[in-house]
Amino acid sequence: MSGVVMVETIRRHVTNAGYLAFLGLVAIVAIAASHFDRPTAAWPTLIWLLAVITGAGPIGPEFSSGTLQLILVKPLNRATYLLSRVAGVLCVVWLTALVAFTCEVIGRAFTGAIPWQVLATALLNSMADTLLTVSLLVLLGSITRAYFNAAIYVGTQIGISVITGVLTMSHRFPAVLQAIGTIDGNLFPDRPLTFDRDYLLLAASNAAIALVLACFAFREREVPYGAD
């Protein structure tokens, strides 16, 4: 892991006006949601959205813009660079989740009792969810150009939902439906509302597999300059 790359990734995000606006939005939503009966009503979805936006950044867009070539001549292993970028992005996303959590805690402190267990579980599940999301996006980024990784990620999610819906209604091809369900459950598992050890392990292990594959793909990838 390269501390330089990780710190730079964090610095570039936290000094970005767009990120700061998003952070403000998350804080407002979390405080507003603290008046709802159900804890953690909205912000985990925003955190997931942030993970999609920031997770799409490493490798693919850098490949297309030509910034990657300046990095690859430096004394830095490709896998180290990739993992450091992921770590930096996750730090930013998790920091935002922590801000949302803190805002909801503060909001609920004014309105009554703080459901610590529910809030902490939501934070943990959100972290696991974004770990898997960022890892999958980086895997896709390591084999595609520009922001195709985000397009493929979102497109696959929508495609799986549509195909599942059609197959369920048609009552045909149960084996295909089951296979798609397994893929869906592994790539896009539903974030539980309660503490679920299996979910956390599934997200962590699938993220690890995605990152190993990403490192391998990136190591083998040719990066001509003036690529696009």
């Binding site: 070539q69 690859l72 001549v73 083998e220 040719e222 990066v223 001509p224 300059y225 003036g226």
Partner: peptide, 12 residues
């Protein structure tokens, strides 16, 4: 450019 890319390790 291909030669430079090979020298710099961008291409195998």
């Amino acid at each position: 450019t291909t030669l430079m890319s090979c020298l710099l390790g961008f291409l195998h």
